[in-house]
Amino acid sequence: MRKIVFSLTGSILILLIIIAVTGYCKYKPKPSVLEVFVNNQSALVEAGTYSLEKWGREAADDTYSDPVTLVRNDDPIVVGPSEEIMLEFENSPQTVKYYLWDVKTGKLAYKGLKGYPLKLEDSNVESGDYAMEIRAKWENGYVLYNTRIIVYNDAK
């Protein structure tokens, strides 16, 4: 009877080890989900380029495209320069920087904007249609998110 219990316990233990090793080998870190809020408007923003490492496993992806091309056909988030752009990450990053690319020209319009939440009037952002690139960095890697925003200024 003892041999049977010992053999059964050993078999179950070996099976659990095999399942754990198989799960570990298939594991890939995934980018944090990002939701952008402006007033009562919100939008989920998908990760583009990223490089992450967790538990000794690595995952990376490169969109091979500029931010304007990625968001040109997306529905824009409309924001006034005095409104705050709030970001809600699944896991809070250590640093966040923003870059605004002019949708018409495809050129970088505003580089390295900072703020958490972001207030565009602090950087004197003019009215226009922009691709917003959000660069979030964690201890285990980075993710670039892209969304389209339209900045309007009623005063002009």
Rank of each mutant, 00 (worst) to 15 (best):
P76F: 14
V143I: 15
R72Y: 12
I19Q: 11
R135E: 03
A59F: 03
K54P: 03
R72G: 02
K156M: 10
A43L: 02
E35K: 09
D66F: 06
I12V: 15
E84N: 10
L15G: 00
E126H: 12
Y24H: 15
L87H: 05
N39M: 01
K54V: 03
G141E: 01
G23H: 11
S92L: 10
E126P: 01
K111W: 03
G80M: 11
Y98P: 01
L120Y: 04
G115K: 07
V5P: 02
Y145M: 02
D129I: 08
Y50F: 15
K28I: 02
L52I: 10
G128D: 08
D75G: 07
G56H: 07
L100H: 07
Y145K: 04
T63V: 14
L120P: 00
Y145I: 01
G23I: 11
L15W: 03
L120G: 01
V103Q: 00
Y116N: 13
R57A: 11
L87F: 12
G80W: 01
Y110T: 05
A60V: 11
I149R: 10
G141F: 03
V21W: 11
Y152C: 00
V78F: 15
A155F: 01
G10Q: 02
S11A: 15
G23Q: 11
S123I: 00
D122S: 08
W101M: 12
D62S: 13
P93A: 08
L52A: 13
E90P: 06
L16F: 04
L44T: 06
L34Y: 01
E46H: 05
A155Y: 03
T9F: 04
E133M: 12
N39I: 00
Y130L: 04
A60C: 09
S92D: 13
V71F: 12
D62G: 09
N40I: 08
S11Y: 08
V125Q: 08
Q94E: 04
G48K: 02
V68I: 09
V143D: 06
G106E: 14
S11L: 15
G141T: 03
A47F: 08
L87G: 00
L13F: 15
A43I: 04
Y64C: 13
F37S: 00
V103G: 04
S92H: 10
I150Q: 07
D61K: 14
L100Y: 05
D66W: 01
D61N: 13
T105P: 06
P76K: 14
G106V: 10
A131C: 11
D75Q: 10
D66N: 14
E83N: 04
D62N: 15
Y64D: 15
A43M: 02
L52S: 14
I77D: 00
D75I: 05
Y142E: 13
M1N: 10
T105E: 06
I134F: 09
K156I: 14
Y99G: 02
Y50S: 11
P117N: 09
S7Y: 03
R57H: 12
S42H: 15
S65V: 06
N153Q: 08
V68M: 05
T49R: 09
Y116F: 13
S7L: 15
V103N: 00
I4C: 09
K3E: 12
W138F: 07
D66Y: 10
S65E: 13
D75N: 12
P29D: 11
V143W: 07
A43D: 06
C25M: 12
A109K: 09
Y27G: 03
